[in-house]
């Protein structure tokens, strides 16, 4: 069973939820299309503040966030998440055009950011990464 089919089988009654947050609507659209097609429930936001509200309401299993956003940037959003028990272990992927300027190891250590994906990116690879993160989280829970 490949990852995708296993994921679909296990989440038949309760599909996985992700949150996509980016101030560039085309990026939000592309990611949403890819994940919805793969059976995910997708919530979206275009700035950090509304993202935080949506995350609190929707409780996604993975958060995909841009770095530079109006009102609240991606790092501040992650800090908010880590400050609350409910979201301290939710996997976060930073999707940014400034990935080459960031130290992924530091971000992982300080904020528990699981991966940094540089734009331009492959939706296909992003999907595979999210699936692996969900699988890893599930195996830890078991």
């Amino acid at each position: 069973m490949n990852l995708k089919s296993r994921h679909n089988a296990e989440t038949h009654f309760m599909p996985c939820r992700i949150h996509v947050c980016d101030d560039e609507p085309h990026i939000v659209l592309a990611v949403s299309l890819k994940f919805r097609k793969a059976g995910f429930e997708v919530s979206t936001a275009s700035d950090g503040q509304s993202a935080w509200k949506t995350i609190q309401a929707e409780r996604p299993q993975v958060v995909i966030s841009d770095l530079q956003m109006p009102k609240m940037d991606g790092l501040e959003l992650v800090r908010k998440m880590r400050s609350e028990t409910a979201f301290e272990n939710v996997p976060v992927i930073l999707l940014t055009a400034k990935g080459f300027e960031l130290d992924e190891a530091d971000l992982h250590e300080e904020l528990g950011i699981n991966a940094v994906i540089c734009k331009p990116f492959s939706p296909r690879e992003l999907l595979a990464l999210v699936q692996s993160l969900i699988e890893a989280t599930a195996s830890v829970a078991e």
Partner: peptide
């Protein structure tokens, strides 16, 4: 850095849309 960011953002959209189309999504 700003120039790179400004170029990468539309490039990211183009690449993502093309991949969605080619993957049949």
């Amino acid at each position: 850095s700003s120039v790179a960011h400004e170029f990468k953002t539309p490039m990211a959209s183009i690449k993502a849309f093309l991949e969605l189309l080619s993957d049949g999504d």
